[in-house]
Design a protein around this nucleic acid. Sequence first.
DNA 1: CTGTTAGCGCTTTCAA
DNA 2: TTGAAAGCGCTAACAG
Lengths: 338, 338
Amino acid sequence: MATTIRDVAKKSGYSITTVSRALNGYDDVSEETREKILQVAKELNYYPNRIAQNLVTKRFNTLGMFILERMTFQQPFIFEVVSGVVDEATKEDFDLLLFGTQSLRSGMKPHQMCTQRGVGGAIIMGLRLHDPIIQVMEESGFPTVLIDIPIKGKRATFVASDNQLGSLQAINHLVNLGHRHIGFINGHLEAWVSLERLKGYKKGIEEHSLPWKSEYIFQGDFSKESGKKGARILMTQNPELTAIFVASDLMATGVIEELTLMGYKIPDDISVIGFDDLDFASHIKPTLSTIRQDKYQLGIEAARKIIAMIKNENYLPEQHFLKTTLISRESTGPVRIE
Amino acid sequence: MATTIRDVAKKSGYSITTVSRALNGYDDVSEETREKILQVAKELNYYPNRIAQNLVTKRFNTLGMFILERMTFQQPFIFEVVSGVVDEATKEDFDLLLFGTQSLRSGMKPHQMCTQRGVGGAIIMGLRLHDPIIQVMEESGFPTVLIDIPIKGKRATFVASDNQLGSLQAINHLVNLGHRHIGFINGHLEAWVSLERLKGYKKGIEEHSLPWKSEYIFQGDFSKESGKKGARILMTQNPELTAIFVASDLMATGVIEELTLMGYKIPDDISVIGFDDLDFASHIKPTLSTIRQDKYQLGIEAARKIIAMIKNENYLPEQHFLKTTLISRESTGPVRIE
DNA sequence: CTGTTAGCGCTTTCAA
DNA sequence: TTGAAAGCGCTAACAG
């Protein structure tokens, strides 16, 4: 059995109350008393029981993080976000309760699971665009931060990269290399980021007044396979393309494989640029040019927001997007002279 | 405020006690009463407060997972283990509290952090061989499962892949392809798995009576850079090598890059086989032959063991290792005819 | 400055 | 079969 406040009280000769106040830094305790109590606490190796504290104070010091749809998602991405959340939480003396794909199986909603566990706010990732949970959380009034999915409740907000910016950076990069016929392989449209990346792509095309057909866009699903398929279809239908912007690194690996199979040299014949900057982007050959998302920072921001909301009843953090960065590697190069 | 057992009692007309027993499935409650209470509970959307439950019952339904040394480790590996732990925990109705690299910063030990939070057992990963925490946990008597590090307390055990088997599989594979001069690039020796992989390598060499020099072994540190360095040194000093077994996929990417730089064709001139089978192993070119660890299962096993220990005061799961699997891809091939 | 009392939401004797 | 009372470990009025 762990030592309780009672033990400290007994041994120090003070009441439980006084011990509590001394330990919690109240100033209505004489310095002498505090010192003695601190001393005893140290001797006894006493640490307050957080769940008892939580029960009585109703002050929350636990975050809940829900990771839905782990499989279809890109794992390294998730892990970096989680790392950011954990680190920021630890810094703020918050614990992190992790809920997996199967946690909602019972039909319980995230805020119910949280309330039941003394968790003050929820970070949710891996949601699809029209998941009913979004509305549930909007209306629940429970502090919620979504990752990569918009939400607009009184106590709900979201964090995401500036995906439009990312697309623009990709297009600009390609245009700077002389490309004018640029294809786009997108992820599935159940992901909000896909919508944004598409907008960015179109914006880029317009801004540079590039030649344009709707056949330049292939609708993938974030899988490597869909990258391969997209590459083949795009190049077969539009042999004039000299560059392809791919909405995820994983799909981009598929694209590169397929193009290579089709006899194209990368980047000599065709430039390929991805999105995310996952770890392997720098390990594959050719190394992959891509748009980096700061995933760790995404986690940090999510944690900051949820913690701010928990600490302040009436605070709803304003929305802002994280900047993406162009990472230029080997898979993109100057357009071939025709 | 969430609905409490009190609300259910009031609305149903029964006492708190009876409600508690009805909900917890005690059989000294008439069926009629139970039905009514269940009904009211449903109407009120009542779910018991787990932290209050925990406080009074001292029955633990939370696992603590500590991830130390995140950076030097391989993130996708960790994430899969965590996924396994989460899924198994959820299945058993356990919650998972995640502690990051900085959580022990305060000087608190894992079991103290856990006790303080009503956490019944700890899974720890990312520990180095001689970390004092190992002994602390051995002696603490707190249910503990380490990942990839041996421990032998009364309430402490560990899970790991059979790394010796993995090495043997790698060597056998190479020998089957006709290789006899096989180099080895290991991880740093602060990792127990490195010791094991080394043993397996030596065993393999012996079993097949292969020609052998201590110069065939390079001591890396799991980083890609060390893979590159190792490849260069190994091939410079031992040009007779036709294959290299590398103790991690990440290092293997470095090896392949460096060998390619040096003008070797893979696998025509030299075969390379990694360890882990991380995601990118199948995305790089050439695709990487490797020894797969079932990381997800590692997580499942860790969770099972810790849960079994929590549920049973006197149970210490016996130790066993998870089988590894040879994954043969493009980076290994028959030895070149000389 | 310190202690008494009450109570967070729940389970568990013990009586009725 | 049900309920009253005590208590898990802690904090928070409220007196003194």
